[in-house]
């Protein structure tokens, strides 16, 4: 789906003496994102995650290297709108990406820009709003939505482009825990049920336990890549990326230290619960047997 080949991105910055300087923000990034994967990108502030995300939607072009989206080079100006319709974007601040003064108008903004037929826009808007569970609120003003609903609306906006991939740049950063779960659940559903490729940028390690792949970034480099299990069992790497160890992984460690043999592969709450229950029942069974 997306192939990033050794890209370099430099921002021009003006320093105190009013001289032009170049700041290398992405320094030789290569990454393959296969179709229908759920890829999470983690990294400390300023590591270049947002800059990378903007390359996936041609909001930026690389200074060196190439980004291929479905076999199209993003530097190909004639294909700009083709690429933009392949990749949808959801940004951090929901208020700064909602353009319409009502929910349905906002979703219609993208299709209207593509000069789509009115009846087609209406069916598309309906399907997008139903998929994110906001169809009931279609006539409402976005100002009246909750944070989680706003980000779901942002997702519907992205879906209205009929994308194969959705890139989300810290969509949960401004949300409370309940709303975060709501949004993460939604994108997992879209990934599983519709095979939409997801690139999720986040600071929350607990949101990525179910990702297919995790990429760790730091200072413009990729410093680690792998499944959640591989990444979270590598404490050195996590420390280098200034990431917390997710609470459930930590709990597993502590349990193992205390002599309770939960396997290292457990990263989700559900599995942890059933594993502990299983172990508990096992020992209880033994206990009864010895009596």
């Amino acid at each position: 789906m997306i192939k990033i080949d050794n890209i370099v991105h430099k921002y021009t910055v003006w320093d105190d003496e009013n001289t032009k300087n170049e700041k290398v923000v992405l320094d030789g990034i290569s990454l393959d994102i296969p179709s229908s994967t759920f890829m999470a990108i983690l990294g400390p502030n300023g590591s270049g995650k947002s800059t990378l995300a903007k390359h996936l939607n041609v909001l930026l072009l690389p200074d060196e290297g190439t980004v291929w989206i479905d076999g199209i080079n993003t530097a190909d100006v004639d294909k700009l709108w083709d690429i933009r319709s392949q990749v949808g974007m959801v940004f951090q601040n929901p208020d700064n990406q909602i353009i319409g003064t009502s929910v349905e108008e906002d979703v219609a903004f993208g299709p209207e820009n593509k000069n789509m037929e009115s009846s087609k826009i209406r069916t598309l808007v309906e399907s997008c709003l139903k998929r994110v569970g906001l169809w009931q609120k279609r006539k409402e003003s976005p100002t009246r939505l909750s944070g989680g609903q706003k980000q779901r609306l942002g997702t519907a906006d992205a879906l209205a482009g009929v994308p194969k991939c959705i890139v989300m740049d810290e969509p949960t950063a401004m949300l409370d825990p309940e709303a975060r779960k709501e949004v993460i659940r939604l994108i997992h559903d879209l990934n599983k049920n519709e095979g939409i490729t997801i690139v999720l940028i986040t600071h929350h390690t607990d949101e990525v336990a179910d990702a297919d792949q995790i990429v760790l970034m730091k200072e413009g480099h990729i410093i680690g890549k792998g499944t959640p299990m591989e990444i979270f069992s590598n404490k050195e790497l996590l420390r280098a990326a200034k990431m917390d160890i997710p609470p459930r992984v930590e709990l597993g460690d502590k349990l193992r230290e205390a002599g309770i043999p939960v396997p290292e592969s457990i990263l989700t709450e559900e599995k942890m619960k059933s594993e502990i229950l299983r172990l508990y029942n096992e020992t209880k069974g033994k206990g009864e047997a010895t009596c």
């Binding site: 939607n57 909001l59 709108w81 933009r84 319709s85 949808g88 974007m89 353009i99 349905e104 108008e105 219609a108 903004f109 993208g110 299709p111 209207e112 820009n113 593509k114 000069n115 789509m116 037929e117 009115s118 826009i121 209406r122 808007v125 906006d157 209205a160 482009g161």
Partner: peptide, 13 residues
């Protein structure tokens, strides 16, 4: 990102 360019023909819902 949502296709607004300000120059080409647009439609209405």
């Amino acid at each position: 990102a949502r296709g607004y360019s300000g120059s080409h023909e647009v439609s209405r819902m």
